[in-house]
Design a protein around this nucleic acid. Structure first.
Length: 479
RNA sequence: GGGGUCGUAGUCUAGAAUGGUAGGAUGCUGCGUUCGGGACGCAGAGAUCGCGUGUUCAAAUCACGCCGAUCCCA
């Protein structure tokens, strides 16, 4: 008996080590031979595919279609919007040669595709009839991370989607920004069972090149904040340099209004951190590649035949209900090994089917998220979808309860400095001056993660300078 | 941005101060016995000791450089 195949670090004691072990041992991902790069394995990729399927459906409903953009962007294009370029330049990978020939206009490996997309958009858009134009791109982006890389959370290349929409009016574009943010919020809460805080980024933290950035942020079990997705209102900051223009009904030429938005495989990292435990991964049923694993238990060939056949029957019934089922028929492992294996991989429900169960006309059902075991009669199998829904709901509830317990209001700076050491989300009044924001960051390591919508409150004074405050942002240390 | 720690079979690691045959556990392969919470026996394969250079008769071990991983602090 060895514990070394399993997770050896405790989540509460050694969070970083625990996280890395879960990623590697649940076979979600592995390190690539180049610093900061990561290989996604089938166990991890199927979670991404599940998220992708959900987003695609929701994007389609919002009139957004998918496209594809190349990975190389000439420097001359990337530099067209000045602030955007300055913001990204320090972390851009450059292609300087083709074979042995030096490339004159060197090529960036896309850190994000605004400049490339809008070069194309300016060709495609001429008339008000061409608007709105809404395209989403599933691809990877590359941003050099010199230090502090971590699987899923901070890698030099990451899987994401980036959406780019173009509108005739500012209002319509801003509505789009919000609509996307809502899709992000719903998907993260409903699929990944992770509660989010929704709102706006501060000027300092907004996307370089945007008028403003809206965001969803979540608190992780170690007290750090993770940005889960962003939706940017670009105004005309890009449409002007890239000449994305249209002739309106009155034949007057106007610059368009634009948005861009994205979520990345960071969401998978968040899911691991929020739901995982000392046994390993815990998958929310909706994104679990395998929702139910059946472990047959038998001593001889007669039992084996009978039990495997019953397992297949159950599998068939469940598959009719669109449930993803796997029967673990591996002969080389004992059932104890299999239990631990599937627990580490986070499968939401395990069914044990042995001679004893056959006699009782029931199966043993074990829930991963709370380790609860119960018997279920063969006739009651119809309630499995309801059980899966219930697990999904309870995982979100539990995550909410914990997030709430890690979030608090505070207005005394000295107290804040002390409390921030323990991590968590702090709702604290702020005067909206960047000086205060920067000083707080310098002195405590915490920054403004998000200014929640409807957080206006004029009764407080800025936690740092004691001047009049009108809003209550969330301060936290971030990933 | 500043500082620290660490790289030895797939994985975890012993060996390093005092240079001289790389040892164990687990995993893997085969056969047999097992099977209601990480089973056991026997046999076997698997390592140019992260990479490079230097010192030396001799380097996993000493020196320097690089690559990679990881933690803490701003």
């Amino acid at each position: 008996m060895s514990k070394e195949v399993g997770i050896t670090a405790l989540k509460d004691k050694d969070f970083s080590e625990w996280y890395t072990q879960v990623v590697l041992k649940a076979k979600l991902a592995d390190y690539a031979p180049v610093k900061g790069l990561m290989v996604l394995r089938p166990e991890g990729y199927s979670i991404w595919e599940s998220l992708k399927a959900t987003f695609d459906k929701k994007f389609a409903n919002a009139g957004i279609r998918n496209g594809f953009l190349p990975v190389l962007i000439p420097e001359s294009l990337l530099g067209k919007e000045k602030k955007h370029f300055e913001g990204f330049n320090p972390e851009v990978f450059w292609v300087t040669h083709s074979g042995t020939n030096k490339i004159g206009d060197r090529l960036a490996l896309r850190p994000t595709s605004e400049t490339l997309a809008y070069t194309m958009y300016s060709k495609w858009i001429q008339s008000w009839r061409d608007l709105p134009l809404k395209i989403n791109f599933w691809n990877t982006a590359l941003r050099a991370e010199i230090k502090a890389t971590k699987p899923f959370l901070r890698t030099s290349e990451f899987l994401w989607q980036e959406g780019h929409t173009v509108h005739a009016t500012s209002n319509e574009a801003q509505d789009e920004v919000l609509k996307i943010l809502e899709i992000y919020k719903n998907t993260v809460e409903e699929e990944l069972a992770i509660p989010v805080n929704i709102g706006r980024k501060s000027e300092k933290e907004k996307f370089v090149g945007a008028i403003y950035t809206d965001t969803i942020e979540s608190v992780m079990p170690d007290g750090k904040a993770l940005q889960m997705g962003t939706s940017h209102f670009l105004g005309q900051n890009f449409s002007k340099p890239f000449e994305v223009k249209f002739a309106d009904k009155d034949n007057v030429e106007h610059y368009t209004w634009q948005t861009s938005w994205g979520v990345s495989w960071r969401l998978i990292g968040a899911m691991i951190m929020v739901h995982g435990d000392d046994q390993g991964l815990v998958l929310p049923p909706k994104v679990a590649p395998i929702q139910i694993v059946i472990v047959p238990i038998y001593k001889n060939d007669t039992e084996k035949k009978e039990i495997i056949s019953k397992s297949e029957e159950i599998k068939h019934i469940l598959e009719q209900k669109d449930i993803r089922v796997h029967i673990d028929v591996r002969e080389e492992f004992s059932m104890g090994y299999k239990f631990n294996d599937w627990e580490m991989k986070g499968v939401p429900i395990r069914m044990e089917l042995g001679p004893r169960d056959m006699k009782n006309n029931s199966i043993m059902l074990a829930k991963r998220y709370n380790a609860e075991k119960s018997n279920l009669n063969f006739e009651e199998i119809d309630i499995i979808p309801a059980i899966l829904n219930d697990i999904q709901k309870m995982m979100l509830e539990n995550a909410k309860t914990r997030a709430d317990s890690m979030s608090r209001h505070i207005s005394d700076y000295e107290e804040f400095k002390k409390e921030i050491e323990n991590g968590g989300f702090f709702f604290a009044p702020w005067c909206e001056s960047m000086d205060c924001e920067e000083n707080i960051k310098k002195e405590t390591g915490a920054d403004i993660r998000v200014i929640p919508f409807n957080s206006e409150d004029e009764s407080k004074k800025c936690m740092y300078c004691q001047k009049q405050s009108k809003i209550i942002p969330i301060f936290a240390r971030g990933y």
